[in-house]
Nucleic acid binder design. Structure first.
Lengths: 132, 132
DNA sequence: CAGCTATATAACCGCAAGGGCATGAAAGCG
DNA sequence: CGCTTTCATGCCCTTGCGGTTATATAGCTG
């Protein structure tokens, strides 16, 4: 449990980050929003802290937790090559619809073009994909 | 185990997606690259399939797995508001360094500005953040 | 048909993560 | 000083996941 991917797998932790996106928060405040016990919240905060996703500011007994978004850049970096793919498809669809607006009826999705690169044995084009 | 966040938490599954990013692949091929057993690979592929991240094409006994990047858009959407944050900071840093290049020495990171919004009790500015 | 190849499924196991309770620690307040 | 507030830690328990082995299924090949 160290890289942001694991951290983000937890809905409560994503929610914490979403809450901290607005403003710094106290543990009690977060606990209230999350609907779990205070130790539970503290545990998640510990994970977030160790992942470098949050920062603590002490104020007497209270702890102000604030966001540290930098580690998310790693996720964003991993996502980058994939982002091209679906934006390309959406752009193509948009252009297509823009070209012929009288046929603006979309049934399924645009059929992806065949594999650009040739694997050891070229994948053929069977009639159906999956029919249990 | 349904939304892409959980799926991406697994290194092997990210690796599968990375491999499928180049071209469609057979299960055996993926198994080889992953360094785990064939049933293990099939299990991960099942998860990816149910998450809508991959698609199967049958060719006799073989199965060509190909990428389906669309569900990743959800991750990207969640990430969007955070992306602004770190790009803003980096931009600010760049501008700063660009303004005074003779002081181009970075020690830690740029000190984040104080909380923009005022919580119920305004978080003060204690001398130190955390010193165990 | 038998036999081989390629993949999926089932059954099982170990381990770690999430959640709760009880407690400890730090710091204000009467 | 004790009491209260605010949070962190230490156990305990349960669940689910990732991994492996063994078996079933589908389809080619001889």
């Amino acid at each position: 449990m160290a890289i942001p991917f694991d951290v983000l797998a937890e809905p409560s932790r994503r929610q914490i980050l979403d809450l901290l996106l607005e403003r710094p928060r106290l543990v009690g405040e977060l606990t209230e929003h999350l609907g779990l016990t205070q130790p539970g919240t503290s545990k998640h905060l510990r994970v977030l802290r160790e992942a470098g996703l949050v920062r603590v500011r002490r104020d007497a007994q209270r702890r102000w937790y604030e966001l540290c978004p930098e580690p998310l850049a790693e996720v964003d970096a991993w996502l980058a090559p994939y982002r091209r793919l679906w934006t390309d498809r959406l752009d193509a669809l948009e252009r297509h619809l823009d070209t012929m607006p009288e046929l603006a009826e979309v049934t399924g999705g645009p059929e992806p073009p065949d594999a650009p690169d040739a694997p050891p044995d070229a994948p053929p084009d069977p009639p159906d994909g999956e029919a249990p």
